[in-house]
Amino acid sequence: MEKGLHYTEVISSLVKRQTLERADAGLRSLALLDRSRKVRRLMDLAIRDIQVEPIPSCLGEDQGAILVSNYPSVSQSLRAVIKVGCRLSGERPRLKAIARPEIVTEANTLLKVLGVDRFVFPVHKDQSGAYRLERRLVKEVLTYLGRPGNVLWLSITGRTRGNGLLEGDLRTGAVLFALKKGVPLVPMGFATKERKGRSRVEKVRFGEPIRAPRASTVGDFERADYVIDLTRLAMCQVARLLPSGQRGDFEDAEERLAEVKTRLGID
């Protein structure tokens, strides 16, 4: 009798899981953001509490770019990125993000219906617990950036500590992708405001594009420092778009920016 009940429970659990998986797949297959420009316009209107500055010309319909920003929180950054993506010109969706896999695996019903899984390159933790780009994912991102008009977003540090602007958390992936594909880095600042004890993005600002010179003239020994300085340059430009108190380690962004430009030989 007990064995029979056990088998019944196992079968019931399997059927329930399969039903949920089919329902989940059905929701994701709708992929509304991918299907209709009108849906993207409606989504833009629905996220009413975030103000977005006019989209700069460097993000025009045929212009590829890498958006780099601070990272106030996973959910708030995602909402801001979705709104910016809905604002980009063109009939097709043009923005994808490098983000934690939980964005997809723990997506709510709305995000599933919108097809958020189609717009995320999920980056997983390695054995040390740090988020790393797998070789396969790197190839997918490079292929994506090779198509005219495609835009990639990622946090400059990959962490939410210090509003995503702590120098100790610096990541060079954005610069390496930009150098490899010859596309500009476009600084983007998520300015926040406290509401009911939580920090929420209220405004998105854009900075001047950073067109990194080719590193072919930089020697092997200097290359690592060169890439790090370009990343610091991007961090300074992002910090300049934010009010005082939201700049993490870059409250003195203007001074740091001048120092980095001097080292890079940029006027």
Rank of each mutant, 00 (worst) to 15 (best):
V151W: 06
V10P: 05
V84M: 03
A80P: 00
G164S: 06
E254Y: 08
A178H: 03
S244A: 15
V201T: 01
C58L: 03
A23C: 04
I11P: 00
A212S: 12
A224M: 12
E21W: 12
V104F: 11
Q246A: 06
S244D: 14
P213F: 13
G26D: 01
T217W: 13
V227D: 05
V39E: 10
R205Q: 12
S36A: 04
T8L: 10
P209W: 13
R195T: 15
W153C: 04
G207K: 12
V151Q: 03
E102N: 01
K180L: 05
Q237H: 15
D126N: 13
K203Q: 14
F221R: 11
L20A: 09
N70D: 02
E251A: 07
I98F: 06
K181G: 03
K196N: 13
S89D: 14
R17G: 05
L241M: 11
K38F: 15
K261S: 02
P187N: 06
A239H: 10
P56A: 09
V218P: 05
R17T: 04
V52G: 07
G189K: 09
R232D: 00
L230S: 06
M43K: 00
T109M: 14
I156V: 15
L59V: 02
V84T: 10
K196R: 15
G248Q: 11
Y144R: 08
K196Q: 11
K193W: 08
H6W: 05
G219R: 07
E202T: 15
Q18Y: 12
K125F: 08
A80W: 00
A130G: 06
R100M: 09
N150D: 11
R87L: 04
T217M: 10
P184Q: 02
Q18N: 08
R147A: 07
S36Y: 11
I11C: 01
Q127Y: 15
A234C: 04
R232E: 01
A99G: 04
P72C: 10
T105C: 04
L264S: 05
V84K: 01
G90V: 04
I98Q: 06
D229T: 08
L33I: 10
A224N: 11
R135Y: 12
Q127V: 14
V183M: 11
L88Q: 00
A130P: 00
L179V: 15
L59S: 13
D169W: 14
N70Q: 01
L110P: 01
A99Y: 02
T143W: 08
R205L: 13
G60V: 01
P101L: 13
R263P: 00
V201H: 01
R35T: 02
P56T: 03
G173L: 05
R132M: 13
G149P: 06
G219C: 10
G129M: 09
S69T: 06
D126I: 13
R211Q: 12
S128V: 08
D225F: 09
G168I: 03
A212M: 15
V39R: 02
G60E: 14
Q246D: 07
